[in-house]
Design a protein around this nucleic acid. Structure first.
Length: 576
RNA sequence: GCCCCCGUAGCUCAGCGGAUAGAGCGAGAGACUUCUAAUCUCUUGGUCGCAGGUUCGAGUCCUGCCGGGGGCACCA
């Protein structure tokens, strides 16, 4: 019983007790096992009240029957019945210590791998070519990356795809501007935004240029070689910028993960043809539309997905339908995940509905819009620069590192190089953790002060706790060996032990709900439990057996924090 | 007008239908000759937006309302 969560084991035993004492079949979930916040109780079973209602007996009597039949051998001490019929469950110290000793040799720290792996196509980051990444992309990028890491660790096959905005009418203007500027391979566009704005300005001011831009769009879409070559230069240049940001952020996306709008372009006609063949389309105002049931516009009329515009072109609605068709049809994805802001929720609801109607999504598929709220400034409005521009991501990240460097510089005698590396880990970690530690559906308030604080639920606090664990182990002059014996003497040790064995439940919760913050909350609780342990339980000066045992606590805490942070995409430096 | 999301301590946020709703910050008081004080321990602080309903039990589920944000036909 090394793998998996204790709650499952307790649930199984309660279910067996319910069967033998009341002759009722309940699922482990119906055993209603929950971690307990009551002093002295580790878990509680809340099933007796509901069952009492069902069998027409007083809940406390039912609880007593369950307790009487409950086989807690080796796992829990004699349960207590409290209140209306709560059953308080307390793990035995022996069981806890045995678990911890077992975790020492388990690289997965008790977390099971799924027996039913899914093939997950996940769309995240998705910046626009010829524009710099800004804060608007940061949440999708960070959350998406964390989900990739979590699902891979969970045992699923994950295929990331970066849905670049790399196609459409703006590219006529951009390519013409590129030709005018004489861009070549040895000249890079150092400032994508300036380049884009200059093109835009020319487009608005110069009718000849605007006309050339329009003709260029036609050439691009008809596959003109020269035009495509220019277009690729723009994409490549933008990718160099994106890769720089990804490298700074520690995001795993590469050019191989590019599945931009251009990628789906060849599939759009077929996608529409299939919708037409299946009788799902209608012509409305000259556009080919699909009207999924249940969506209405301002006037109360059905709301369309426009799959071919009245001018014959294709928009994002066509592309998004084509992605569903491609990933389920061509790539055999079972799960589609879109890490895109909340404002798009209606759009995705419509795309999913239409895709079900078209048969691209079956009951065996899961399609999820992993939505997220906006980043707000401390004034409660959209996070922008003072002049109202969106903040460049690369600037934001370097400010994070600079601010972290200021903190690091104050208090360490490490080399310049080590300090830089730590500042990077702390600064980038702060930005990512701020994003991942609260419920993604809510807006969150961006605050340098809060995200870089050394107290509270921040990356720095977790990293610091981890560094302290490793510092103690270093100073001990020992390596923590498998087979070491764990002893519980202080309450702080038991609290930490209980915390450490709950990693599987935390990861499962984060995976199930696409909610990385559940893992973040767990890691914070773990770090807190460790710092309390740190204050109360001297390690190096303890008696030999206790010292050995406490070193195990340090080692396991470090492993849990390091693994957990890694699953969030955050570095855990070995010293701070 | 219709639809979606949010409303929990002064602030920023957790909270899985279960017991007396929890953290951090802030405010107040303590703790470093001791493993990293980037810390810890106390104290303070709540009609969970409002009103109904379902339930043995509601911050959590349902309905209505009030606030805040967003979306609603050829931009993505």
């Amino acid at each position: 019983m090394l793998h998996g969560d204790v709650g499952l084991e307790l649930a199984a035993r309660v279910a067996a007790a319910v069967k033998s004492s009341l002759d009722l079949d309940i699922t482990p979930a119906e055993a209603l096992i929950r971690p307990s916040s009551r002093p002295g109780a580790d878990y509680q079973c809340n099933a007796a009240m509901g069952l009492g209602k069902k069998v027409g007996r007083p809940p406390r009597e039912v609880a007593a029957a369950i307790v009487g039949a409950l086989d807690g051998t080796g796992l829990i001490v004699e349960p207590e019945i409290a209140g209306p019929g709560f059953i308080n469950l307390t793990l035995t110290d022996t069981w806890l210590t045995t678990q911890l000793e077992g975790l020492l040799t388990d690289p997965r720290l008790g977390v099971p791998e799924t027996g039913h792996p899914r093939r997950i196509a996940i769309d995240y980051s998705s910046p626009n070519v010829a524009k710099e990444m800004h804060v608007g992309h940061v949440r999708s990028t960070i959350i998406g990356d964390a989900l990739v890491r979590l699902r891979r660790f969970h045992g699923d096959e994950v295929i990331p795809h970066n849905h670049l905005g790399d196609w459409g009418t703006p590219f006529g203007m951009l390519i013409e501007h590129l030709i005018d500027e004489g861009f070549s391979a040895d000249h890079s566009i150092s400032d994508l935004n300036t380049f884009y704005q200059a093109a835009r300005k020319k487009f608005d001011a110069d009718p000849d240029f605007a006309e050339r831009a329009r003709l260029r769009v036609v050439k691009l879409q008809s596959g003109d070689e020269e035009t495509l070559r220019r277009w690729r230069e723009l994409v490549d240049e933008s990718m160099r910028h994106f890769m720089k940001v990804y490298k700074t952020l520690g995001i795993g996306l590469t050019p191989e993960d590019n599945y931009g709008e251009s990628f789906y372009n060849p599939f759009l006609a077929d996608t529409v043809a299939e919708l037409e063949r299946k009788g799902l389309t209608e012509i409305s105002d000259g556009a080919v539309c699909v009207f999924p049931k249940g969506f209405f516009n301002r006037e109360g009329d059905p709301l369309p997905l426009i799959v071919r515009k009245s001018d014959g072109g294709y928009g994002y609605m066509s592309t998004d339908l084509a992605t569903v068709r491609y990933w389920t049809g061509e790539r055999g994805a079972t799960d589609l995940v879109y890490v895109v802001g909340t404002p798009q929720s209606q759009h995705f609801a419509m795309v999913f509905a239409a895709s079900r109607d078209a048969g691209w999504l079956t009951p065996g598929h899961t399609a999820v819009h992993v939505n997220f709220g906006s980043i707000l400034g401390e004034d409660g409005k959209m996070f922008r620069t003072r002049s109202g521009d969106s903040i460049k991501l690369i600037d934001l990240l370097s400010e994070a590192v600079d601010r972290a460097a200021a903190v690091v510089g104050e208090r360490t005698d490490l080399s310049e190089e080590e300090r830089a590396s730590i500042a990077h880990a702390v600064g980038i970690g702060a930005v990512k953790y701020a994003d991942l530690s609260s419920d993604r559906e809510k807006d969150y308030v961006f605050s340098w002060e809060k995200m870089l604080a050394t107290d509270g639920n921040t990356a720095a606090y977790l990293q610091y706790a981890n560094a302290r664990t490793l510092s103690i182990i270093r100073k001990s002059g020992e390596t923590v060996q498998p087979g070491a014996t764990v002893i519980l003497t202080e309450k702080a040790e038991r609290d930490l032990a209980l915390q450490l064995i709950q990693l599987p439940a935390a990861i499962q919760a984060a995976v199930d709900g696409y909610t990385p913050h559940k893992l973040a909350t767990y890691l914070y609780d773990t770090a807190s439990a460790f710092t309390s342990f740190f204050e109360k339980c001297p390690v190096l000066k303890a008696e030999p057996e206790i010292r050995k045992s406490r070193l195990v606590f340090c080692a396991l805490t470090s492993k849990v924090l390091t693994l957990g942070l890694d699953l969030l995409g955050i570095e855990a430096p070995t010293r701070l």
